[in-house]
Design a protein around this nucleic acid. Structure first.
Lengths: 189, 189
DNA sequence: TACGTTTCCTATGATGCATAGGCAAATGAT
DNA sequence: ATCATTTGCCTATGCATCATAGGAAACGTA
């Protein structure tokens, strides 16, 4: 069910993920979908939770056994590769579950989001930042990674040379150097 | 016409920007909209172009008369403030005009996109980066700024302390320190 | 064998995108 | 001043989609 939604998202875009499209793919009639899912919004929220979980799995694999710069690079790279392989799922990752969440899908999504944050936090541990600085660093890396992938997938980098991939490496370098600088100050005199 | 679309986007979200909603707001019947706009897609693309242009205006004001770190900070801050004031327009900013663009709205959007890139490039000039490094830096700052704003507007930072605003300052510091480091190497031995 | 649960179905209503074709007022040239 | 053209809006219509209501068939279990 959610798998069908994920496949539709990757093949035709997140907009195409509707009860009717899922029904079509599963070979049943649209109303049948409503027995398993509470409308189009719930369908997309379930997809959000699954996508967040899948990408966290990939990231966790990539980061295992690494530390410091290497861990952050591996995490970011895993994130980016997964997004390229599954653009629809990645788009689902950015769905907003506005405000009060009491439904199952939103809670799962929240938990998966925390998993992501924890993985990144662990990767940054080697820098020896204090707690506050670590949160800032987590958010900054997250912002850069998401922003870069979003712009890249949107084709925003296709109007200038060189290819996006080389900017990705330099961008990571910039971020990591900046965090190292922050760590120097944080632990400094 | 596009103004009505922008107001709807800010008030009810980008999803709500449809010919029928615009007609409602303007006090006319839905079919009348099609005399001015070529369907829902074209309506959103026009909104994209206008939003990109408006934000570039704001950024240009903010950056005028500044250079180096201060210019980049002002640019980023203007961007972020505008996004907070106009979340729907900001969301429109991320619409993808897939591939071959021969319609008016897409061309305007492309031009406005270039304007943004040029403004950022100019702000970074003081770092004395070579051409290739400058492109990488432009893309990296762009990625961070967009990523941060997107995550912030999506509420991704609301599940941890402290407030997002303080991370924004630290994040900019990280990026700027990273670029300074890059400049050192670029001009270095 | 009879019951309840699950799962899917048809039928229906509502809403929104989009096109076709017509009416009326404003514009501009003769 | 008159008439044709343009402009802008209208009603009517077709079609796809979300969503609900209520019923029929298949499944396991007492």
């Amino acid at each position: 069910m959610v798998l069908a939604a994920a496949e539709i998202a990757d093949a035709e875009g997140l907009e195409a993920v509707t009860p009717s499209a899922v029904a079509h793919r599963l070979g049943v009639r649209p109303p049948s979908i409503y027995a398993h899912v509470d409308g189009a919004g719930d369908l997309r929220r379930r997809l959000l939770a699954r996508a967040l979980d899948e990408s966290a799995d990939r990231v966790a694999e990539a980061v295992a056994g690494r530390a410091g710069d290497e861990a952050v690079r591996a995490l970011a790279e895993a994130h980016r590769q997964w997004a390229h392989q599954h653009p629809g799922r990645y788009a689902a990752t950015r769905i907003v579950t506005s405000g009060a969440e009491d439904d199952e899908a939103s809670l799962l999504a929240l938990a998966a989001g925390r998993r992501h944050a924890d993985l990144l936090r662990a990767a940054l541990r080697a820098y020896g930042l204090d707690d506050a600085a670590e949160v800032h660093a987590v958010r900054s890396v997250g912002a850069f990674v998401h922003g870069f992938i979003a712009l890249e997938l949107a084709g925003s980098f296709e109007h200038s040379r060189p290819a996006a991939a080389s900017s990705w490496c330099v961008g990571l370098r910039i971020i990591l150097a900046g965090i190292a600088d922050l760590a120097r100050d944080s632990a400094g005199p």
